[in-house]
């Protein structure tokens, strides 16, 4: 019998896994069920996953089980989460035999409810032998070995998790979860573009592509010109200012939360905290977000923020590291 260790970052938009065998995979957190008999016959499957589901979404009922950052409270969402986890594990560990066991750590938003954590335990019972549920932001800190005074800001799609580290497990007051995250930015950007150019045709995928390619909060940027269609006719549109204003709507509440966490910390360590801000998650790819955070801390005496190198796998790598460093005697407790 072999024991495989895995770390999973169960995200609203993407789910990542890192395994003790050295594999890292990412899939889009969605499941598509055929809408009717015709589509069922066309696909020949009960469901489609990830990018394949997204590409065929017109013929599918799409389920985004973690749309709000945590597992939605319905049976379909639980089932879809189980399907995604099971398949990403199967794909990442093709060598696993039936007699082998999996020990896993799964990252969830810092302030996920007990009900939500229990839901994950229930879903994974059949295919994971031992599971640890950990805060996503804490997993990021663990991946980079930062337990001393630092502030982790994990900007995901459904939630932004902030976690103040001070050498031990963070308490409730050290953590904050905001709804201002990637999906919120998508919504704001859609609204702003539609107001400025009422006739353009937008879909969540178009908005996501624009955001991921051009999103920025710096004071200067090259002009952002994108091709959008109006009644099927493609034309170039300049969205430089719209994009920045929308992105600032995301970063402003995050900066405010950072100020709050810094301001309520032990005054002797505030300076150290201000100078050790680590930004992770998909949102860390917004150009200029580190300097925007630093700017917001000017009246507090300045600060220093850096973005993690591997935004996509940082959380799952931390979760795996935790699993692999967990002494066997501790595992035996569960």
């Amino acid at each position: 019998m072999t024991i495989f260790h895995i770390g999973i970052d169960l995200g609203t938009s993407r789910t990542s896994i890192t395994t003790s065998t050295g594999r890292r995979l990412t899939t889009i957190t969605c499941v598509g069920y055929p809408k009717d008999v015709i589509s069922r016959k066309r696909f020949g499957k009960e469901y489609l996953l990830g990018s394949e589901a997204l590409e065929n979404r017109l013929a599918l009922d799409m389920i985004w089980p973690l749309a709000e950052g945590v597992i939605c409270e319905d049976e379909k969402a639980s089932e879809a989460t189980g399907i995604i986890l099971k398949h990403i594990i199967t794909e990442a560990l093709p060598e696993k035999k039936e007699t082998d066991h999996i020990y896993a750590a799964i990252g969830v938003p810092a302030q996920a409810s007990i009900k939500n954590k229990k839901a994950i335990l229930e879903i994974t019972t059949d295919f994971i032998k031992k599971v640890l549920i950990v805060s996503e932001a804490f997993a990021v800190a663990y991946s980079i070995d930062r337990f001393d005074e630092c502030l982790i800001v994990d900007i995901g799609a459904g939630t932004t998790d902030l976690c103040r580290m001070h050498g031990s497990i963070p308490e409730k007051e050290d953590q904050a979860t905001l709804k201002a995250a990637g999906n919120f930015l998508d919504h704001e950007l859609t609204k702003a573009i539609s107001e400025e150019f009422p006739d353009v045709q937008l879909t969540p995928q178009i908005i996501k592509r624009i955001k991921e390619k051009h999103g920025y909060v710096s004071n200067v940027s090259d002009p952002v010109e994108v091709t959008l269609t109006s009644r099927g006719i493609p034309s170039p549109y300049d969205i430089t200012d719209i994009l920045r204003e929308s992105c600032l709507k995301l970063t402003d509440p995050i900066c405010k939360a950072i100020q709050d966490l810094v301001g309520t910390f032990d005054p002797d360590f505030q300076e150290k905290l201000r100078n050790n801000i680590i930004i992770a998650g998909g949102g860390s790819r917004l150009r200029g977000i580190d300097t925007a955070v630093e700017r917001s801390l000017q009246e507090y005496g300045g600060g220093s923020a850096v973005c993690v190198q591997d935004a996509e796998h940082c959380g799952s790598v931390g979760a795996l590291k935790m699993c692999m460093e967990m002494p066997e005697a501790y595992w035996e407790k569960i």
């Binding site: 050295g22 995979l25 990412t26 990403i88």
Partner: peptide, 8 residues
Amino acid sequence: KTFYAHSG
């Protein structure tokens, strides 16, 4: 194509 694998 659903997955993007890397060596870790």
